[in-house]
Amino acid sequence: MALEEMRAILEGLLKRLASSLSGSDLGEVLDHLVWLTDDNGHDIFEVCREWLESGERRKVEAGLGLSEAFLYNDRETYERVLLPIAARWPDLAGQVQEKLDVFNRQFPNGSVPSPRRPS
């Protein structure tokens, strides 16, 4: 499946999400879908990165709701993308801070280590 197909599927799910639910509710579903796709969620992660930078509240909520992966490889990128979200929507600041805290605890040096090559 191409990225464009996954984007269309996820956009469709977001559009059909019950109005009483937030985008973060879709994020929980995406966590499950990651494990079911033939690319281990690669395209889902790419769409979520796009959504976090989209400026659209429900898309941003869905991207923040994903917890099964780190969408970025370094603290600088996380901060560049997430801090403006917290500034624009103060009620999402807690989720933003939690994402940053989890990343910082997992990677205190500020970046995801590169995979080691077998020797």
Results as ranks from 00 to 15, higher is better:
Asp25Arg: 07
Glu68Asn: 13
Arg57Lys: 13
His42Ser: 13
Ile44Gln: 03
Arg80Leu: 15
Asn40Pro: 05
Asp31Trp: 01
Glu76Cys: 02
Leu66Ile: 14
Leu26Ile: 03
Glu61His: 00
Gly65Pro: 02
Arg49Asn: 11
Leu52Met: 03
Glu79Asp: 10
Glu79Pro: 07
Lys59Asp: 04
Glu79Cys: 12
Gly27Val: 05
Asn73Gln: 14
Gly65Ser: 04
Gly27Asn: 07
Leu30Trp: 03
Thr37Asp: 07
Thr77Tyr: 03
Asp39Pro: 05
Val47Glu: 02
Leu36Phe: 10
Tyr72Met: 13
Asp31Cys: 12
Asp25Asn: 13
His32Lys: 15
Asn40Ala: 13
Arg58Ala: 12
Trp51Ser: 03
Val81Gln: 09
Tyr72Asp: 01
Glu76His: 06
Arg58Glu: 08
Leu26His: 00
Gly63Val: 01
Glu56Lys: 09
Val60Ile: 15
Lys59Met: 14
Glu56Arg: 10
Leu71Cys: 04
His32Gln: 15
Ser24His: 10
Ile44Thr: 00
Asp74Leu: 08
Arg75His: 15
Leu30Phe: 06
Glu56Ile: 09
Leu82Trp: 06
Gly41Asp: 01
Ala62Asn: 00
Asp31Ser: 04
His32Trp: 12
Asn73Thr: 11
Tyr78Arg: 06
Tyr72His: 15
Leu36Asp: 13
Leu64Met: 11
Gly55Met: 04
Asp31Ile: 02
Phe45Thr: 04
Ser67Ile: 11
Thr77Glu: 07
Cys48Val: 08
Leu82Ile: 08
Glu61Ser: 06
Ala69Gln: 09
Leu64Arg: 05
Arg80Asp: 09
Gly55Glu: 03
Asp43Asn: 13
Trp35Asp: 10
Asp25Val: 04
Glu46Thr: 15
Leu52Cys: 03
Arg49Ser: 08
His32Asp: 15
Gly65Phe: 02
Thr77Val: 13
Asp31Gln: 01
Val81Glu: 07
Val47His: 02
Gly41Ile: 03
Arg80Glu: 15
Glu68Arg: 13
Arg58Thr: 12
Ser54Ala: 11
Asp74Glu: 14
Val60Cys: 04
Leu30Ile: 03
Asn40Thr: 10
Glu56His: 12
Ala62Thr: 00
Asp43Ser: 11
Leu71His: 02
Tyr78Pro: 13
Gly27Ile: 03
Arg57Asn: 09
Thr77Asn: 03
Trp51Cys: 01
Tyr78Thr: 13
Leu33Gln: 14
Leu82Asp: 06
Leu36Ser: 12
Trp35Leu: 14
Ser24Gly: 08
Asp43Val: 00
Leu26Thr: 05
Leu26Phe: 02
Ile44Met: 05
Asp39His: 07
Gly55Ile: 02
Trp35Ala: 12
Glu79Asn: 06
His32Leu: 14
Val60Ala: 00
Glu46Tyr: 05
Asp74Met: 04
Arg80Ile: 08
Leu71Thr: 02
Tyr78Cys: 10
Gly55Val: 04
Gly27Gln: 04
Phe70Val: 10
Ile44Asp: 01
Asn73Gly: 14
Tyr78Glu: 12
Asp31Phe: 00
Glu53Gly: 08
Glu53Arg: 13
Trp35Ile: 12
Phe70Ile: 14
Thr37Arg: 09
Glu46His: 14
His32Thr: 13
Glu53Met: 14
